[in-house]
Simulated assay, not measured.
Amino acid sequence: MTEVSIQPEFFQLDAGDGRPALVGTSCRSCARRSFPPSSTCSWCGNEQTDTVQLSRTGTLWGWTAVTAAPPGYRGPVPFGFGVVELPADGIRVITRVAVSDPDQLHHGQPVELVADVVHTDEESGATVVSWAFAPTDHQEAR
Rank of each mutant, 00 (worst) to 15 (best):
1 M>L: 08
111 V>L: 04
89 D>A: 11
22 L>N: 02
61 W>R: 08
32 R>V: 07
77 V>C: 03
5 S>D: 06
116 D>R: 15
32 R>Q: 15
118 V>W: 04
45 G>V: 09
94 I>F: 07
30 C>I: 08
111 V>F: 04
60 L>T: 02
30 C>M: 06
42 S>V: 09
56 R>W: 03
102 P>F: 12
120 T>Y: 10
52 V>N: 09
48 Q>S: 04
36 P>W: 14
101 D>T: 05
111 V>H: 01
123 E>L: 13
13 L>G: 05
58 G>H: 06
68 A>W: 13
86 L>Y: 08
57 T>L: 13
96 R>I: 04
57 T>V: 15
4 V>C: 10
38 S>V: 01
12 Q>W: 10
25 T>C: 14
82 G>F: 07
73 Y>K: 13
76 P>T: 11
10 F>M: 08
13 L>W: 09
65 A>P: 03
7 Q>P: 00
41 C>V: 11
48 Q>A: 12
48 Q>N: 04
23 V>R: 15
116 D>C: 09
14 D>K: 08
19 R>H: 10
36 P>H: 10
112 E>M: 07
88 A>C: 14
30 C>V: 12
86 L>T: 03
22 L>Y: 01
43 W>E: 14
40 T>I: 10
93 V>M: 03
56 R>E: 06
51 T>G: 12
9 E>C: 07
122 E>Q: 02
120 T>D: 14
11 F>Y: 04
18 G>N: 09
42 S>T: 10
23 V>N: 08
99 V>K: 01
74 R>D: 15
115 A>P: 12
61 W>G: 06
5 S>Y: 10
6 I>G: 02
93 V>P: 00
86 L>E: 03
72 G>D: 12
68 A>C: 07
119 H>V: 06
89 D>S: 13
54 L>Y: 09
124 S>H: 02
89 D>E: 03
84 V>W: 00
67 T>A: 05
72 G>C: 05
87 P>N: 03
48 Q>G: 08
104 Q>K: 09
46 N>D: 14
92 R>G: 15
112 E>C: 12
34 S>L: 07
123 E>N: 09
92 R>I: 15
19 R>P: 03
113 L>M: 08
50 D>W: 01
93 V>E: 02
50 D>Q: 03
52 V>I: 15
90 G>P: 12
46 N>W: 13
125 G>W: 14
58 G>F: 07
39 S>Y: 05
